[in-house]
Design a protein around this nucleic acid. Structure first.
Lengths: 266, 266
DNA sequence: GTATAGAATTGACATTTATCAATTATGACT
DNA sequence: AGTCATAATTGATAAATGTCAATTCTATAC
């Protein structure tokens, strides 16, 4: 949404520069989020050595395709991506959205191939962590090994939450839970949790939540009528999160306090 | 279903004896399934040393409760369990069924507490693997570390499959996929893949699949009318798996060949 | 064997959400 | 600025599934 003027081109340029500069993890703007507190200085250097920074992806470019062989996991530095897998009938199933500081690729370790594709929703920059190196390094650094297990466990847990959502909740509960989830994840990265831009289309949201686009659209409208949110396309302001939590049917384990340190990266 | 005669009591007795015997992993009937081919003899002994065998659970007994602190992962030796978590409205959400050779507890690593409870669906015997030991041991045995990551990755992948099922599929596709999944998992353990007993109730199935019991019941009836299965309560015979795969809308990645070595333990 | 509680099935009806169709809005490109 | 393709919204209708209620079946206890 920011690339129609010259100044925005400059901004894009800057992202590229950031890449070229090969900033170390220490200086990375996501440093605090991106690294567990438990890793100390020298360990951090070791970790830094194995991390590769890639050229930013433009909107709709793929980070990896379905079935491509697995050698790295990725961390989002800026921007966002969706992961999706093809279904029999040629459709796609959106399996997740990935915001800054979040991981992709853990589901590929098992089979050595990516079971889903990852596509940038906007200009997006990621760190690549070659798995072989990571595995080797985690032999030396027990903390790292534990962090890795912890992250994967977190992902299993999150997926179960989502299964609950998909299996048992109404359309309004699903959308409500979705918005709160995004809100929380932004908050964890230091962004506003009450006002944000959704980088994904209504179609992607609907797909992810197992609903028809039309239903999602109607729910957005209803939420506005009910004063729960203000929404202008992708620009969202949450007006009544307490009520939304009720609607989402969330239990304590999903509120802000408990999830505070989730998705810490490597 | 087999405990109304004296002979069946004897059979139950035998399970208990099996426990008392404290058989080593090497002699465990699940040996091949339970251990990766890549671990050699001496490594196997090390692994065996940290595994504890527990007293079998009776039907409806809990292996662990929601929120209980995590110290072990478990492998089903015989019998079966369901995992479930409470929802806000006091209901329960069944998150999975666990057949012999399959794992429980990986979702607890992240927070150090079990996010769900595990209850035996029948007389059930499990191996307990203390996580701290496992973690330490996997420093020494890189293969073990990789197996652990691989298993967790598999679980993430499987959950995503289920999400697809819950989000996009009709009731008949869900039940069809469920039966084929059970069938496959039995096959992987050397049991018949076309005739088996379901240890879980229709209620549990419905809950797991995000459907009403009545819907599940009707689908069982319809499947019989259509000649897809023969079903007498929990006793199921699959008559036309090819057709069921069509109905389930399964893509190649879910068929028998590709999933053959899934859920190998530790 | 009989009684009883829970599980499973079946039918009637209500509700939710998907589908189809039409319209409007937005963003990208010339 | 104007055009076009795509995304988003809205309305009308249909289909799938949930809910409620009644009945039958099964397993367990007595």
């Amino acid at each position: 949404m920011q690339q129609k003027t010259l100044s925005s081109n400059l901004r894009n340029k800057k992202v590229v520069d950031l890449h070229a500069a090969k900033v170390a993890c220490k200086e990375c703007s996501l440093h605090q989020l991106c690294l567990p507190r438990s890793i100390n200085g020298s360990d951090l250097e070791k970790l830094d050595n194995i991390i590769e920074r890639k050229k930013p992806l433009k909107r709709n470019e793929h980070l990896f395709q379905v079935g491509s062989s697995f050698h790295s996991i990725y961390v989002v530095r800026s921007g966002s991506l969706k992961t999706y897998s093809p279904t029999v009938d040629g459709q796609e199933q959106v399996t997740g959205f990935h915001l800054p500081g979040e991981l992709l690729g853990l589901d590929a370790i098992g089979k050595g191939r990516h079971p889903c594709a990852a596509k940038a929703l906007e200009t997006t920059s990621v760190c690549e962590v070659p798995f072989e190196n990571l595995e080797g390094l985690s032999q030396e650094l027990p903390t790292l090994q534990y962090q890795l297990l912890r992250l994967m466990s977190k992902e299993i847990f999150d997926d179960q939450e989502l299964m609950l959502l998909l299996g048992k909740k109404t359309a309004e509960a699903r959308l409500s839970a979705f918005l709160l989830s995004i809100s929380l994840r932004f908050k964890q990265r230091g962004f506003s949790s009450i006002e944000f831009y959704l980088s994904m289309s209504r179609n992607d949201i609907a797909n992810y939540l197992g609903l028809a686009v039309e239903t999602v659209s109607r729910m957005f409208t209803r939420f506005q009528e009910d004063g729960l949110i203000e929404a202008e396309r992708k620009h969202i302001i949450l007006k009544d999160r307490e009520n939304m939590r009720q609607i989402a049917g969330m239990n304590e384990c999903c509120n802000e306090t408990s999830a505070k340190d989730s998705q810490q990266i490597i």
